[in-house]
Amino acid sequence: MSSLIPALASAVPVAAGWSAHSMWLRRRLEVARRDPLTGLRTRAGFESAAARLVARRSVAVIFVDLDGFKQLNDRLGHATGDQAIRVAGTVMTETIGDGRGVVGRLGGDEFVAVVPLPGSHALPWLLNGLHECLTTPFVYQGRSVSHGASLGGVFAPAGGSLSVLLRRADEAMYAAKRDGGGWRVADLDAPHQPTTNGRRPGRTGGVS
């Protein structure tokens, strides 16, 4: 018994050290799953959280692509482009909420979100409001900056496939972009468009 007490006492700092190390690892993992420019979830972090939400709730899946982003970068510089991405990330978070829904940046000027909805009737209202917020001009370094946005959304009851819903939302977003911007609602039961590696032929992220 007398030898056990010193052994336990010496183990306490070691256990505390491991606990601190585990907390540090968890923080580093969380940082790695967040986009450094916007603070939104990156693809891996988004897909993990979104899949859980899709499995248990009826949801809308929304795909967003900023219109004219490459031209904005070319005309006003990458610092302004970065600010446009930050503003869009803030709009996504404040409109949808990363507590109520799940918001992510896939890269470039592409954003995605999954948000609980009671029914499909609410999706057009949500897309219209989000589009208005995303296309509202903002001021950066004394200059008013504006760009367009194309949005696609799909509603699904609980238990859907996240990959299928993302593809449908992406297709609807592309239809909106092809028609000059705005938003479109996807038909979950319609035949999907041909894609290459899950994306439409000839389209690359970040160039619009």
Rank of each mutant, 00 (worst) to 15 (best):
A79L: 14
V115C: 01
R26Q: 13
L127N: 03
P194V: 07
A113C: 13
D67G: 06
S48Y: 04
L66V: 02
G152C: 11
G99K: 10
A11C: 15
D82R: 14
W183Y: 13
D74L: 05
V207Q: 08
P116E: 03
A84G: 13
A176T: 02
S144C: 08
A176Q: 06
F63G: 05
S58M: 05
E132P: 00
R43H: 08
D179Y: 10
S150I: 07
A79T: 10
V145K: 06
D35F: 04
H78L: 07
S19A: 15
D109F: 00
M1F: 12
R184Q: 14
R167A: 09
V145F: 11
S146L: 04
A175D: 15
A88R: 07
R168V: 03
L53R: 11
V102D: 09
N197G: 03
L166R: 11
C133T: 05
L66Q: 04
H147D: 03
G81C: 10
P124I: 04
G206P: 00
R168L: 13
G142I: 01
A51W: 01
A186Q: 11
H21V: 11
G202Y: 04
G119A: 15
A11T: 12
V154G: 09
L134G: 07
I5G: 01
R184G: 06
K70V: 03
Y140K: 04
W183T: 02
